[in-house]
Amino acid sequence: MKASTGQWFTIGLVSSWYTSNIGVLLLNKYLLSNYGFKYPIFLTMCHMTACSLLSYIAIVWMKMVPLQTLRSRVQFFKISALSLVFCASVVSGNVSLRYLPVSFTQAVGATTPFFTAVFAYVMTMKREAWLVYVTLIPVVTGVVIASGGEPSFHLFGFIMCLGATAARALKSVLQGILLSSEGEKLNSMNLLLYMAPVAVVILLPATLLMEDNVVGITIALARKDVNIVWYLLFNSALAYLVNLTNFLVTKHTSALTLQVLGNAKGAVAVVISILIFKNPVSVTGMLGYLLTVLGVILYSEAKKRTK
């Protein structure tokens, strides 16, 4: 009975992880592209504000995980540096959704292992086995093919999406370098608790400078259509749920299971986005995406075998 309950709990967690991940992605796309709310920095700031508040409630009030305190000013500066890279990643990703279909952004996002390997080598001189590097060839080739066959290709959107993917990889490598000592390591929930408020501080002036009168425009829009308020609140809560469920799935499954689920999640997001937004797709584009996913699976296998 206990094993059965545990299985259902894990299935529920994975379902919540998939739903929140794909949900926030599709809602971002709807708001920034279809609804016409063209303020990706403000949208990211809403996400980070929700993550700040909900992280505090979950850790300090509800005690879902023990609170890990910061040890030094240096540790705070390291977390601030990570937060800056994290902001760049999320904002770039949201900007790309204004110009590109979700299916294509998922194909580009699947190249994260390539950028991770490059940054790990450049910043730590960490070399992987030759087999790992070979598996990165289909990862990159697939995106090149998908780009050539993408009917809705937009160069600026593609550059932003590539930047978001690179920044995401850079954050994971930096996190390993900056928070490597035992005294500085934080679990992802506590890291988010400290990163999110720093992100809000970074994004607030960026929003005011780069998205002129966004607060006034949002208030005016809310007077015409109150749904925008609910969209933003729900979207921001989902952004936190993505981080919470990711932490819980990581805790209750193995790293390998997480990799497999992550690869499948991208494919599920592609199918759902095409069904909802009905964006045109070409056979070439889909073959390119499948080649990239195959490359990521081979990469995961190669990494596992060379450990």
Results as ranks from 00 to 15, higher is better:
43 L>W: 02
44 T>I: 02
44 T>V: 09
49 T>M: 07
52 S>W: 08
54 L>M: 14
55 S>K: 05
56 Y>V: 14
56 Y>E: 13
57 I>C: 06
58 A>P: 01
59 I>A: 06
59 I>W: 09
60 V>C: 10
61 W>Q: 13
61 W>H: 10
61 W>A: 10
61 W>I: 14
62 M>L: 15
62 M>H: 11
62 M>K: 12
63 K>S: 10
63 K>Q: 10
64 M>W: 08
65 V>D: 06
67 L>T: 14
67 L>Y: 15
68 Q>M: 05
68 Q>Y: 00
69 T>N: 15
69 T>G: 13
70 L>I: 12
70 L>A: 10
71 R>V: 11
72 S>H: 08
72 S>P: 01
73 R>F: 07
73 R>V: 04
73 R>H: 02
75 Q>S: 00
76 F>M: 14
77 F>E: 13
78 K>R: 14
78 K>F: 05
79 I>H: 06
81 A>K: 15
84 L>D: 11
84 L>N: 05
85 V>C: 06
85 V>K: 02
85 V>T: 02
89 S>Q: 15
90 V>C: 00
90 V>D: 00
91 V>I: 06
91 V>E: 03
93 G>K: 03
93 G>S: 11
94 N>A: 12
95 V>Y: 14
96 S>M: 04
97 L>D: 04
98 R>D: 12
99 Y>W: 07
99 Y>D: 08
101 P>N: 15
101 P>L: 13
102 V>P: 03
103 S>Q: 07
103 S>W: 01
103 S>I: 01
105 T>D: 06
106 Q>R: 10
106 Q>L: 11
106 Q>A: 13
107 A>V: 14
110 A>V: 12
110 A>T: 12
110 A>S: 14
111 T>I: 02
112 T>P: 01
112 T>C: 04
113 P>F: 01
115 F>M: 01
116 T>K: 00
117 A>N: 00
120 A>G: 07
121 Y>G: 07
121 Y>V: 03
122 V>A: 13
123 M>W: 13
125 M>I: 02
125 M>P: 00
126 K>Y: 05
127 R>W: 07
128 E>T: 04
128 E>W: 07
129 A>E: 13
129 A>T: 11
130 W>S: 07
132 V>P: 05
132 V>F: 07
133 Y>M: 04
134 V>M: 08
134 V>R: 10
136 L>S: 11
136 L>F: 06
138 P>Y: 09
138 P>G: 02
138 P>M: 07
139 V>G: 09
140 V>E: 12
140 V>F: 08
140 V>G: 12
140 V>I: 15
145 I>E: 02
145 I>L: 08
146 A>F: 05
147 S>M: 11
147 S>Y: 09
148 G>R: 03
151 P>F: 09
152 S>Y: 00
152 S>K: 03
152 S>M: 09
152 S>V: 06
154 H>P: 00
154 H>N: 10
154 H>D: 06
155 L>P: 13
157 G>I: 08
159 I>G: 03
161 C>R: 00
163 G>R: 12
163 G>A: 14
165 T>A: 03
166 A>K: 05
168 R>W: 06
168 R>F: 13
169 A>T: 02
170 L>V: 07
171 K>I: 08
172 S>K: 00
173 V>H: 02
174 L>S: 11
174 L>H: 13
174 L>E: 05
174 L>Q: 15
175 Q>P: 06
175 Q>E: 14
177 I>S: 10
178 L>G: 08
179 L>H: 03
180 S>D: 12
180 S>H: 09
185 K>F: 07
186 L>D: 04
186 L>W: 00
188 S>G: 06
